[in-house]
Computed example of a mutant assay.
Amino acid sequence: ILTRVLTADEYGELSLLMTVYALLLPILSIALPQYVFRSFFDSSEEFSSRLQNGLSTVLAWTAVGNILAISVSAAAFLLNFLSMVQASACIVIVVSASLNSLFQIRLLLFNAEGKAKSFVTFQISYSLLLFVITLASLFFLQAGSFSRVLGVLVADIIFAILAFREIKRTFGAKVVFPNSFSNSLDFLKFGGGLVPHLIASVLLSSLDKVIIASKMTMSDLAGYAIAVQFTSVLMIFTQGLSKEWSRYYLANRGGSRVMLRGLTLVGIISGAGVVIYLLKDVFFFIFVGDGFSVNPTVIVFLLIGQIFHSIYMIVSIEITYLKKTHILSSLTLLSLFLNLMVSFALVDSYGTVGVAIGTMTGMAAKLI
């Protein structure tokens, strides 16, 4: 809908703002949702205290972030670097990213508790509200590229309130001054080690498009972006499996059947990748049409890369359990570096296929 209403420049501006929003999420939350999920499987007596300390620490951190965002955006407006609308949008995405951590915490706690129906209901409700507000802003407020920004703001405000009420009711957590320095330090070590990993993961999903935009045509970029969206269907499938796997693994770590189930999951993911590739012609006929050129070789390399990444998500749970999150960050930064080097080396000779090989190489190195 957005690509049919917005101009190319407006859609580019929207994409840039949402990329910044995605980068802000781990920075402002300090990976608190992931820490809370991991802590759920430790001592139940300490969980509420750890949750409270984490919430209080992140609240103080995001308050500083919001003050800084307002100050920088105001200065950029006064110096004519940004328009009033652009400066306001920058402030809005910082506020929204600050609130989103509460929504993510409630989601991951539903996952930890094994409440799949509640997880799905909460996630779909958020997405539906975001969809409705975005379209209302687009058609009634004529907000253009900022319609998604307004949708994210409204969705994050409402679901932050709902999530906090649920967290307080279910786990008795409050926002208070941290009462245990050791718990706060434990959280900051975990989150500080994981944040580079999360940021690099966002960059991994956008770096290839930046390279193509700088070296090739927008038509090439459009075809590659469609291939990425198509192969991402595998990630939608495997993210659901990996969430259940992470809960099962942390609850049964060391059991004799854990390895067998993990290997079975690897086989299912690999088989799903083959099925998705075989369905590519049907997908493009229904959703894409004849106006875009998508190289099937690009799809092959991107799908293989997605399979590598999906298996990595399974085996890396043990590193998260050991709280050695700095290892995950090192692996993802290595993947990002290799992706960049290989993509730049091959893009002039092989075009989008070379960039896809770069993506696959980065994912393979991380898994190995």
Rank of each mutant, 00 (worst) to 15 (best):
S206L: 04
V347H: 11
S39W: 05
V233K: 06
I269D: 03
G362Y: 05
V202I: 12
R50T: 03
R257L: 05
G192R: 04
L279P: 05
T57L: 08
L14H: 12
L265T: 09
M341D: 12
P296R: 08
T352I: 13
I158K: 06
L188D: 05
S330H: 04
I311S: 10
S56F: 00
V274T: 04
A89K: 06
A136P: 04
L16P: 06
G351K: 08
A365M: 02
T19A: 15
G305S: 02
V58H: 06
L32E: 13
Q123S: 15
L328D: 00
L130E: 03
R148D: 00
M341Q: 13
C90S: 12
V202A: 10
R257W: 05
Y321I: 04
V210L: 12
V202Y: 14
K280W: 01
M216K: 11
M360S: 01
V85E: 11
V64S: 10
F187T: 06
A160R: 07
A272V: 01
Y277M: 01
I299Y: 01
F37P: 03
L367D: 06
M18C: 10
A173L: 03
L260A: 12
F187D: 08
F337V: 11
I307M: 14
G291M: 00
F146W: 02
L279H: 05
V288F: 00
A89D: 05
G271L: 11
S48R: 15
L59Y: 10
Y11N: 11
V72E: 08
T361R: 09
G267P: 14
F285A: 07
L99S: 06
M313Y: 14
L203V: 09
S145F: 06
I27N: 01
Y224V: 01
S101E: 00
